[in-house]
Write a protein that binds this DNA or RNA. Sequence first.
DNA 1: GCGGATCAC
DNA 2: TATGGTGATCCGC
Length: 857
Amino acid sequence: MDNNTKEMNNNNKDDLLLRMGLNDNKAGMEGLDKEKINKIIMEATKGSKFYRNELKKEKQVNQRIENMMQQKAQITHQQLRKAQLQVDRFAMELERNRNLNNTIVHVDMDAFYAAVEMRDNPELKDKPIAVGSMSMLSTSNYHARRFGVRAAMPGFIAKRLCPQLIIVPPNFDKYRAVSKEVKDILAEYDPNFMAMSLDEAYLNITMHLQERQNWPEDRRRYFIKAENSVEIDKPGEEVKKLREYECSISPLLFEDSPPDTQPPGSPFQLNSEEQNSPQILQNSVVFGISAEEVVKEIRFRIEQKTTLTASAGIAPNTMLAKVCSDKNKPNGQYQILPSRQAVMDFIKDLPIRKVSGIGKVTEKMLKALGIITCTELYQQRAVLSLLFSEVSWHYFLHLSLGLGSTDLERDGERKSMSVERTFSELSKAKDQYSLCRELCADLAQDLQKEGLKGRTVTIKLKNVNFEVKTRASTVSSAVSTADEIFAVAKDLLRTEINADSPHPLRLRLMGVRVSAFYNEENKKQQQRSIIGFLQTGNQALSSTGCSLDKTDRNEFVKPLEMSHKKSFFDKKRSERIWSHQDTSKCEIVDKQSLQTSQPFQVLKMNENLETPENSNNCQTFTCPVCFSEQGSINLEAFNKHVDTCLDEPLTSEDSKMSSCSRASSSEAYQEENAHSSSLCEKQDCETYPKNIEVSSVDGGDLVETEDSSSKAASMNTSANNCSKEECCNIINKSSSPFSLENENVKILSQQESFQPRTNEVTGQALVCPVCNLEQKTSDLTLFNVHVDICLNKGIIQELRNNEVNSVNHPKKSSRSCTDRVQKASGRTKRPGLRTKHSTSKKKKPNNPRHTLDIFFK
DNA sequence: GCGGATCAC
DNA sequence: TATGGTGATCCGC
């Protein structure tokens, strides 16, 4: 027994199994004992090179966790309190923009490849089967899953788990054909549906539901094919459900009616003659007009047409819909009703691992912080904001509030294309070069099919110890032919071969990728010229809702020459020079973010500027810093004014706030901990001033309900001392989004934590929780901008300095354009990529502020 | 821009 | 005997 094995036996065994995708809480282990499964897997894997590499990777993750925990230990109460404030402000913003108006459906075929194989080969029914090879399985049927046989498991291990397992080689052409049938059905409910792979898709059936309200019954009637009794593994209820539709009926009558008899757009409708047949009526089923009925209908039709079952989830956004589709799998569906309460009830105990984007590593890291469920994720939001990158904690926050993408965007242009191949050990340089050339040729063929050329060539090497390396090179002119790609790739390969010389590279995998496509570059060039135009004075274009991504933001405020080829360090140097500030990087970032964000903020705030044309007009703006109205000036002048205001230092009241929070932070922290485990208590809300009427707590726009006539209220600078209670409240108020029964009350409780105090006499004046000054405005949005600015003025920045941990969740759904299947036959043209999590960068008609988004990083 | 890591399917 | 292929993203450099 070597050291590694001993280590395993101590306490890492479960972790490793988890890493390897075994003993996973996503697995269903009805048939074979979990212990037994793990034991068999361990025996099969122990001592292998693969296993050793897994151990190595695991150690790295553990190290990462250790670093994170050390960082956590260094967080001060004050930092935590500030973070809480900031995160809660963001949470409030998210809450305000919660969108429950869409009905999103996630459809997922059950054990797709295996199901197709079983359907087409009756001998396989009732037997455990898997599709794949001895090296790797793509999927298994439910029978096999009882033995622990799962997708992404090597076939030889699966065989040990289940010796009677039948491994069927994949037949992608067939799967593609079936998939097409399914997609034809889906397209009737949402022509813009988004296919994630051959067996999975999202639909937005909002429009369909509207139209369907007026449909006569006959248009929702479908006829039942008698012989359609699909064998399904799940016993009991599901089977019964299915049998409801299984009446005896002539197969002739059930078959889809010929195309020419069908009214346009509804190929399944039968002509009137057929409808009048009593026999058919008897054996038909009419679906209702609700979302649930629609999805039942979809699943019914899929099954009738393909003899395969599908599961589905219905929810107000894609994140939830995806989780839902897993809930009653196989051959079931689940809906989250479009109310905040329903969403929160569902999310409450949901293990984060169930959510798309939380993988094994993230799960483990969060688990180390005591986070397993979404509730716990929400409770720890402040800590998470200090330990993780902005992108990551934003994602976590979305997730813990049950938020996700509500539209299925089509914005996806492919960003890279690659080929890679695994083989038995290849050590001779000559062989490696010739393999490389082959891969380049294959890739060139694929690239040319799509007419793509790219400037970056990357090679990927995996040695026999499963260690992976990538090496990339970007050339000045785009490449697409085999020779062009190989010219770059072989240099990269040679460098690696020489580096290890005289030892040979012992490879088990090689890959070649081309990225930085020419098309993309073209776009960037265009963007640059637009940015150049904007910089000449027309910055207002940013108000159209096109928030800029990180890179663009940088370019937005910098001279053009900076966006050209320079190293990272050169760029940083240039930034400093350009900014004319011999100050810290922190301040530069701050300045940039404010410059880019302010016009955006203000324009959104005024909400009457929808178009670039409008935004050029002179408007009456209110400065979010001094709150004075700026009369009829153009945006540029207004921005100058804001900048001037920003350049003025914060008042000495800052220190008051600091000392206040020091005094109370310890207690606040304890309170936080005390409450962290008791989620569903109505806590502390009573201590907050009752005279705040947050009148529009139903998710509507707060601004509209505020009396804006009193903007000119006198500036009362008498600072309100921050009482202990209040400081505690800030933290405790919102420690659980799930605790209150009433939706409105719930939102109120969330908002309270960052709601300003009102002057008790006028009920109007707002006190900034950061600078602690009463603000002469009653406009909540304006006030919020002020608070953001206060936060921006360096207070938060110190918190960011410690941030190290990142979680690479998919911002866009990573829809593999080849998915272990599509490679074989020309890819189906995907509808495009879609923003999955962070809604912060998406166009949001009613989202007035994104200050925090823009500020960080 | 590069390289390693993570994630999804 | 034996642990995949493709694409995307994020982060630190």
